[in-house]
Amino acid sequence: MSILSDLSDRLLPGMGFDPALDAALDLVERAGFTSVIYDYTPVPRSHDGVLITPNILEARRVPDDMMRLWRDGFYQLDPVQDAALSSAAPFVWSAFGPQSRIMETVLCERHGPVLGYMRDMRFSCGVTVPIHHPGGDLATFTAICVDAERDFGEAAARLAPAIGLLGQTFHDIVQTGFSPDTRRSRAMRLSPREIQCLSLCAEGLTAKEIARRLDRSVPTVTLHLNSAGRKLGARNRFQAVARAAHYRLLGAAS
């Protein structure tokens, strides 16, 4: 049975995350895959270009230590995630043998630890679906085959469009249940008052004008702006505003 023949019956609007991921696993297993991984991050990279560990990172039928390793730093070394940022279409990858064009473009020595782990775990082949939001959010849905037959890569390439539709359908269903905190970057935390002051600064207000707007003293506003700048590693207020915008913090105070 094909992946798509049962898609509308197995993945239903309003499903919870866990039942939906279980259903997605069942669908990819019918096509010969063994595992699925899904992740979501509202801001994929830090202001200095480092991959940010996703707010959601969940899997089915992967090694027991995999999610812990990825949360502890392997995510930042994952070539599949680098490729997902550069692609709008599903792509095939492998821990062994030839790679798809997009993977060849990003692979470098830095990815060695992750590739070594994938080889050790016999991740023969995978199809990853990048899901880009207009606001910059990134989700990926990945189907993996462990110990695949030699010619499975060719089959995976033919299945990539179907995996793409499955991944997008899964994401569309589960993302409706994301909380505001899930949709907010956790890589940088500012206090509500710091966000408020930076947001007004972004509108062009001086510290004196912000103080008047918030009915606070100028030294208090300056304290909040300087504190936000330190947390963001900014050299000045202009850079602080730019970095706060990068993390989508401006206007985020409740």
Rank of each mutant, 00 (worst) to 15 (best):
D78S: 09
I56A: 00
P42K: 12
A24S: 11
G16R: 01
R68Y: 15
L21N: 03
L57G: 05
A23C: 02
A23M: 04
D18L: 15
H47Y: 15
G73H: 04
I37A: 00
P42L: 09
D22N: 11
M15V: 02
G73C: 01
L51P: 02
D22Y: 11
L27S: 04
F33M: 00
L7A: 06
D9S: 13
R30I: 12
D64W: 08
S86P: 00
S35I: 06
D64I: 15
F17S: 03
G14A: 06
D6H: 08
R10A: 13
F33Y: 01
A83E: 06
S46T: 06
D22W: 09
A20C: 02
D82V: 00
T53N: 11
T34S: 09
A23G: 03
A84E: 11
G14P: 02
V62M: 10
A84M: 14
P63E: 08
V28D: 02
E58P: 01
T34P: 12
L21Y: 05
D26L: 13
L21F: 03
L7D: 13
P19G: 11
A23I: 03
P54Q: 15
Q81T: 08
I56G: 01
A59G: 07
D6L: 09
S87L: 13
T41Q: 11
I37Y: 00
V50S: 07
D22L: 03
V36A: 08
P19V: 11
F17E: 06
M67K: 11
